[in-house]
Computed example of a mutant assay.
Amino acid sequence: MHLTKRKQEGGQYGNKLESWFEVLDLFPKGHVELMLHDFEPEDERSWISYLKDKGLPAEPYWYQDYPGRFAKPEVLDISHYLKNIPLLEAEDLSGDLDLPDQYVTVQWDSNEDARTLPLESRKAVLDEYRKSGYKPVIVGGEAENPALKNSLRHIGYAMSKARFHVGVDSAFMHMAFLYFPHQDVHLYNKKNGFQSHHLRRALDCGCMLNLHYDDI
């Protein structure tokens, strides 16, 4: 994966490059590599030209299943590879976490209100999982446990031992796909809420939508 200069800077906490390597550490060594470039292209064409001039066999990609408004067909259809994702084996961090015997990982926070549920609805949804014997374990920005808030390694381990993941269209939805088959990822969205191409693809692949939520 080739990163332009801009893709290495910024982020919510000013640690975007550090976050890239934290994500990379979730994968088996030697399967994914990052190549950093001190270059910011004007457009996609200049980016590909820059890489090819350096002898790097990079290809632009697109999403054929749900193309964006200005998308054009490219050699590489990335959506094909997102439909059957090999599950990762998480690092054993059981000594760092006190997890329940039966639980679901949960993540509601989102940068956009349109992607999540009202607070009372979230509580009602989680009550349904409790009735089925599953304790909610919050991960991400609203987690009380610092490890489940700030460490992707610990969040990955928690997900790998959970029965389901319960959440919204967010970065943690994508992370859940690394540890759960699609049918065990339960997504929630307001009836008229925004549905990204990521969410639509997830539903096509077998994720459940609004299992315990009826937005009337």
Rank of each mutant, 00 (worst) to 15 (best):
P60E: 07
L82W: 02
D127E: 15
E74K: 12
H174P: 01
P60H: 09
K7N: 13
K7W: 08
F177V: 04
H186W: 10
F70A: 09
D109G: 08
R201K: 13
E33W: 14
G156E: 01
M173C: 01
C207H: 00
P28W: 00
H182A: 11
Y13V: 10
T116V: 05
H212Q: 08
P181L: 03
V32R: 04
A171F: 03
G156Q: 00
V139R: 00
V139K: 00
Y13M: 15
L199C: 07
F194T: 15
Q183K: 08
E22M: 12
E128N: 12
F27A: 04
M173D: 01
A171M: 07
P86R: 13
Q183M: 05
A202Y: 02
V23M: 03
P146K: 09
P146R: 05
H174W: 14
L152I: 14
K16L: 15
K161I: 07
V185M: 01
D169S: 04
F194P: 01
P146L: 08
S151D: 07
Y50M: 02
N111K: 10
H182Y: 08
L148H: 04
D65F: 06
K191W: 07
L203D: 00
L3T: 03
R201P: 00
P146I: 04
L152F: 11
W62P: 03
K149F: 12
E33S: 15
S170F: 03
E22R: 14
L88M: 06
E142A: 12
S121D: 12
S132P: 07
S94A: 12
C207P: 01
Q183V: 09
P28R: 01
A58I: 04
Y81P: 02
K54A: 13
N145F: 09
A202F: 08
F194V: 15
I85R: 05
Y61I: 11
N189C: 13
S196G: 12
L119H: 10
V125Q: 02
H197I: 06
Y157C: 03
R122W: 01
L93C: 09
V75E: 11
K123L: 09
K123P: 02
R153Y: 11
N150D: 12
V137C: 08
D215L: 05
L117M: 13
A124V: 06
P100V: 12
H80T: 12
A114E: 12
D25M: 11
N210I: 03
Y66N: 02
Y63F: 13
P86Q: 11
K52C: 11
Q12L: 13
L119Y: 11
D214G: 03
G133I: 10
H198N: 03
I48N: 04
L99F: 05
E144T: 12
Y63N: 14
S151H: 09
N111P: 06
K5V: 03
G193Y: 09
N15A: 14
D101V: 14
H165R: 02
H174S: 02
F172I: 10
Y213C: 05
L36W: 02
G11Y: 15
S110Y: 04
N189G: 06
W62D: 07
R153H: 11
